[in-house]
Design a protein around this nucleic acid. Structure first.
Length: 387
DNA sequence: ACTATTTGACCCGT
DNA sequence: ACGGGTCAAATAGT
């Protein structure tokens, strides 16, 4: 079923439609002597931004097979998109969890898919923050990093508590080129991200992206999980939409020989109970602690199936990552998360009620390259977007 | 009233 | 102890 790309598709269409409208406006402005240069320039910027965003969405979402970086539309000035970062690192994390006995021991292993994109915002327009990548994020922290001039911002998915979306991202403005932002994503969105509007804004230019993870990620999001059972109907619908998958591809400009494309299917599951169990910091607020769920149960849920990872079919291994259940669908949804900590009371209650799903189970996070349905070798790039 | 951001404290792995 | 990541209370914005 391809419902996965639904909302993304809508957003894409929406974006392109907006761009078309802007182009039309520009056209009329061009034939109207009275329009100012500024206005025209503004429209041009908006149009470019629309293109950028659409491109971003495409790559982000279904794997797009294109190797080249997107050519930048706006580039003026300075440094070419050299690839700044290190060349890629690939690999991933797959962690195999064995069920080792030592139960109690807080085992921790967690690895969330993680990859980085470098985005440039055009100086011309205001707007600075990194572009809107189509997801709604909530900032939860900012830190000054050792040798960086600019602080790093930490964001997590807005729906973390409601839908248990584990995705987070960090945004670090580049020291040398302030127009570049390095955005590191961690975890795939499991939320439906229902309302997503994508306001156009700065025009970003993706310089490159690379997946990596290599390192162990230390902690990931804290959240244990639990399953949801009854969710409201409405909710469930939303859920349906949600699966989308994303993937990225790297292209490090050809530097490397192999490409690493990755795509992840939709959800990530906490695969392992691992993390949650460790909800690492527990900050003890008495009450909160009170409702923490037994990690134990959590554990059981998954674990079961794991498919070994497959490496990438083709060339070197590329990818893997979380996975979804056999098909990403509704059911398989994230059954996880929890929240106990923050979040207003109201939210909390809602959440709780929403939680628990019967489905849980089987879906475990496994890793494999492409969505279940597609063939590994690549695939579907654009499964017909606009047709 | 609510939700989002700010920001120093806290926690954790090195 | 240090650096990085997250929490959570206070604050700001809607």
């Amino acid at each position: 079923m391809e419902n996965m790309g639904d909302w993304e598709q809508k957003n894409l269409i929406n974006e392109l439609t907006q761009g078309r409208e802007l182009a039309r406006q520009l056209h009329s402005h061009l034939t109207t002597a009275s329009s100012s240069h500024e206005t025209r320039e503004f429209l041009v910027q908006k149009i470019l931004a629309s293109y950028e965003k659409s491109l971003l969405m495409l790559r982000w979402s279904s794997s797009v097979g294109e190797p080249q970086p997107i050519a930048g539309a706006v580039r003026n000035s300075e440094s070419p998109p050299s690839q700044v970062g290190s060349p890629r690192s690939e690999d991933s994390d797959r962690d195999i969890r064995d069920l080792d006995h030592k139960s109690d021991a807080p085992r921790k292993r967690k690895a969330l898919p993680r990859w980085t994109q470098q985005v440039r915002v055009s100086p011309g327009m205001g707007l600075e923050g990194p572009l809107d990548d189509g997801f709604s994020w909530r900032k939860y922290g900012q830190k000054d990093i050792l040798n960086a001039k600019y602080p790093r911002g930490y964001y997590r998915c807005t729906h973390r508590h409601v839908q248990g979306c584990l995705a987070t991202k960090q945004v670090q403005r580049s020291d040398e080129d302030p127009t570049i932002f390095e955005i590191t994503y961690r975890g795939r969105h499991t939320c439906s991200q229902a309302s997503n509007i994508m306001p156009p804004q700065a025009s970003p230019e993706i310089v490159l992206q690379e997946p990596n993870d290599v390192m162990d990620l230390q902690h990931l999001n804290p959240q244990p999980q639990q399953q949801h059972d009854h969710h409201e109907p409405v909710l469930s619908q939303e859920l349906m939409l949600l699966n989308f998958q994303a993937n990225l591809k790297v292209q490090t400009g050809n530097l490397d020989t192999h490409h690493a494309g990755q795509s992840f299917p939709s959800f990530i599951f906490p695969s392992s109970s691992t993390f949650e169990a460790a909800d690492h910091h527990h900050h003890p607020t008495p009450e909160q602690q009170a409702h923490v769920f037994p990690a134990s149960m959590i554990d059981n849920n998954f674990v079961g199936s794991y498919s070994p990872s497959f490496m990438s079919p083709e060339t070197s291994g590329t990818n893997y990552f979380s996975a979804s259940p056999g098909g990403m669908n509704i059911t398989g949804f994230p059954a996880d998360q929890q929240r106990h900590f923050q979040s207003s009371e109201s939210e909390l209650t809602e959440i709780i009620s929403a939680a628990t799903s019967a489905t849980n189970s089987p879906t475990v996070g496994l890793d494999f390259p492409f969505g279940p349905k597609f063939d590994p070798n690549f695939s579907f790039d654009n499964h017909g977007f606009f047709s």
